[in-house]
Design a protein around this nucleic acid. Structure first.
Length: 334
DNA sequence: ATTCCACGGGAAAGCATGGACC
DNA sequence: GGTCCATGCTTTCCCGTGGAAT
């Protein structure tokens, strides 16, 4: 049934990107100066999740690396590396400069200094989920490094630029901004088909079934591929050589929940407790929430800390805060 | 008008980590 | 080994702001 499990993974980067030609061309144009040994234009990729931003960025850089012999690149997920230090650390890692960087020998900006002294082949950095950075000033620092080019990925342009300060924003005026829209059903089917061809046995699944998956995924390729993967794994467990209708039906809620579940697991126990209280109640005002939390937890943190947690949960799209100040309530994301 | 509650920025304290030095 | 120390990160404390309830 499953011939190549890798292509069913969400983070698999195909050689050819399906249905993103205009976007690919724009990105390619932004990166093109590199082939002349000049710094690339800063490129922004905006769009909802599962629209191929990360995939396209990785794919294009891979291609560029094949064409231009000499180029370094590094992918940094700012969700996991949201502090200034970690972001820069990861970037240094991409050029193997971290080995002897240790806390003690790292006065303030030794890290950035090292990047500045970098003197190798053109270096392109992909900063994914860049809106998760706690301090956008890193972008300014990175921008001032002429030997490093950036591809920045985020969901919403306005929200990101609202957090970028004036001087950086004005310098980014001439950057390339590429908008990604949700996939249509046909496009999703084509994406799924490509994975099926490479990853599954022939006849494992038919066109109508792919359409059904595509519909359920509502324009999100990551979800679509997740459904396909779960259904295929189910079929494999059942020793079936075809994916059944039932397997798909079962896989749909799983795939949606999976993304959220993974996020929840990255939270601390206290944060998870808060999230649990909120999901159990559906909607709850801050006062009651804090009370419940104190009841359920051995050594409760301060209210202020809980506010920090809550805003983190909001950022992670696990909960929403309705209303301002006094009238605020928290509820789980639907 | 006053009190109450919550928000969120900033400073400071606390905690864990891992090299330096003995 | 043991102690010291700089650093990054988390948590707490302090406080100004602002809307809602009294």
């Amino acid at each position: 049934m499953i011939r190549d499990a890798r292509v069913l993974r969400a983070d698999f980067v195909p050689k050819e990107i399906v249905h993103r030609d205009p976007e690919a061309t724009q990105l390619s144009n932004a990166l093109e100066p590199i082939t002349r040994d000049e710094p690339a234009e800063t490129a922004f990729l905006f769009g909802p999740s599962g629209t191929g931003k990360t995939c396209l960025a990785k794919c294009m850089l891979e291609r560029l690396r094949r064409e231009v012999i000499n180029i370094e690149h590094q992918y940094v997920n700012c969700w996991q590396n949201y502090t200034r230090f970690r972001t820069i650390y990861r970037i240094l890692e991409g050029i193997g400069q971290t080995l002897d960087v240790h806390r003690q020998s790292t006065p303030k900006d030794e890290l950035l200094e090292r990047l500045r002294q970098y003197d190798g082949p053109p270096y392109v950095v992909i900063l994914d989920e860049v809106d998760q950075l706690e301090d956008m000033n890193v972008l300014y620092d990175l921008y001032t490094l002429s030997n490093i080019s950036m591809v920045l990925i985020a969901n919403r342009e306005e929200e990101l630029f609202a957090r970028i300060d004036e001087r950086l924003a004005s310098r980014l005026m001439n950057s390339t901004r590429i908008q990604f829209d949700k996939y249509g059903t046909d496009e999703l089917v084509a994406i799924l088909q490509a994975r099926v061809d490479r990853g599954l046995a022939a006849d494992a699944i038919d066109h109508a079934q792919l359409e059904r998956i595509a519909d359920a995924a509502a324009g999100d390729a990551r979800v679509a591929i997740g459904i396909l993967r779960n259904a295929a794994q189910q079929a494999e467990r059942d020793n079936a050589d075809q994916i059944t209708h039932g397997a798909i039906t079962d896989a749909i809620p799983d795939a949606r929940a999976e993304v959220q579940q993974r996020t929840v697991e990255t939270l601390t126990p206290h944060q998870q407790q808060l999230y649990e209280i909120i999901t159990e109640n559906g909607s709850i005002p801050p006062g009651a929430l804090y009370e419940r939390y104190c009841e359920q937890v051995e050594e409760p943190k301060t209210k202020r800390t809980i506010r920090n947690y809550l805003s983190k949960l909001c950022q992670y799209n696990l909960i929403v805060a309705d209303g301002e100040n006094r009238g605020r309530t928290y509820r789980p994301i639907s």
